[in-house]
Simulated scan of single mutants.
Amino acid sequence: MVIDPSSGNDEGFALVAVLVFMLIVAAVVAPFALNARTRLMIASNEIEHDRLSMVADGLVNVVASELFDGSGAERLPLNAEPARCHAGHFSFDLRVQDHGGLIDLNAASDPLLTRGVASFGFDPKRAEEIARAIIAFRSPPHAFTAGVQQQSSLGPRQNKFAVFESVSELQEFSALASIPLRDLYGVFTVDLKQGSIALAKAPKRLRNVIDGSHDDEAGAQDKSGGTVYTIEITARRDGAGIAGQAGLIVEKSSLTAAGFRRVSRMPAVETGDSGLTSLAPTAGCDALFGSAVAQILGRWS
């Protein structure tokens, strides 16, 4: 039998050709496979985020019900102090602010507004000027000065001559425009319609600038149940960077079966906000949400 010496070369060339072809196919397919995997991970993370957000939103309703039926007001911190609990593979961060401890933009006097503005680090003179601009913004015009408007350089371009409808209107003031909206919501309210504040319910930022013993507008001993609350909850899977958040202002209402109504949503909490996480003491979820809800959370995965 005669062996053709060129046949080995043909087979080797064919093998090389197949390998080159496979490399080309892999080079073309690999980016598509990687892109598909990335999209799958993104979709999975979005689903997890949405699921955690829905749980957080539901827990806001649970806490609101507890506050307005009286069972939660006795055991939950009402001055924005953070609390945290673990259940199953998840952690839940909670912060509740009774609006009785905030300054109402439509009812507070010049001195109280000045203290609220000063809590953002303004010196007393500038804080007083901004407070006067706030009062001018909300106050109706005087009959003898109609058409004449003395504008403060610290306020908006034009006064509203009507009540504040939202705390977010403060960002129209040039002096306050750079302050994060969440921080403004942590000091002021438009939902209480009350000229004084309860110092025991005031957040730390306000307690640092208000001395209840020298301020008739600060009721240091008022610990009664409130009618308006800000409730913020963040839900996280342990060991994961994905979080779901819900923050709402809720108001007591006899017109709904739940006993309260949602007034508005809060600006979103940034992931890793230390105000809701690293400083939050750990407690049992039954202490925050009740034993029945804690059991459900413990079984949830």
Rank of each mutant, 00 (worst) to 15 (best):
F188K: 00
P5H: 10
N79V: 10
T234Q: 11
Y229P: 01
V16R: 03
I42W: 09
G58C: 08
R236H: 03
F32Q: 15
R265Y: 13
G70M: 13
T277C: 02
H86P: 08
S174D: 06
A146I: 10
A240H: 12
S291G: 07
H142D: 13
H86W: 06
Q158K: 12
P82E: 11
V293M: 09
E232I: 03
A26Q: 10
L206Q: 01
V163L: 12
R138N: 03
D273P: 01
E48L: 14
S213W: 01
Q221A: 13
Q150E: 13
L181Y: 06
M41N: 07
A220V: 12
A30P: 03
A136L: 02
S254L: 11
P267D: 07
D191T: 08
P82I: 12
T38P: 00
D191L: 07
G8S: 10
T282N: 05
R95A: 07
A73P: 05
G155N: 02
H142G: 07
A287I: 11
A198H: 00
A240G: 03
C85E: 06
G226Q: 01
Q150I: 12
Q97A: 09
T277S: 10
R126Y: 04
T38C: 04
A283L: 15
P124Q: 10
D10Q: 09
E48R: 12
M266S: 11
G116P: 00
A83K: 04
L199D: 03
S91C: 05
S224A: 15
A26D: 14
F122V: 04
G186V: 00
A280Q: 03
I130D: 00
T189F: 02
D222M: 02
F164H: 03
G100N: 08
A87P: 02
F144W: 09
G100Q: 05
D10M: 11
C85Q: 05
V163M: 14
S71C: 06
S71F: 09
F173I: 08
G72P: 15
A146H: 10
L76R: 02
L113H: 02
A133L: 00
A73Q: 14
E169G: 03
D191G: 07
F92I: 07
N45W: 10
S6Y: 13
L248C: 09
R299I: 06
L15G: 10
L34N: 09
G226M: 02
P111L: 04
V20Y: 07
A240L: 14
E128L: 09
L154H: 06
P82D: 09
E232H: 04
A30E: 13
F32E: 12
N208E: 15
V29F: 11
S174H: 12
L40V: 13
G121F: 09
A202N: 01
E11V: 15
I103N: 00
V96C: 06
S109I: 02
L248K: 08
S65C: 01
V60C: 12
K201M: 13
R75I: 14
D123A: 06
A17Q: 05
D98H: 11
K125I: 12
L206D: 02
P267Q: 08
A87S: 13
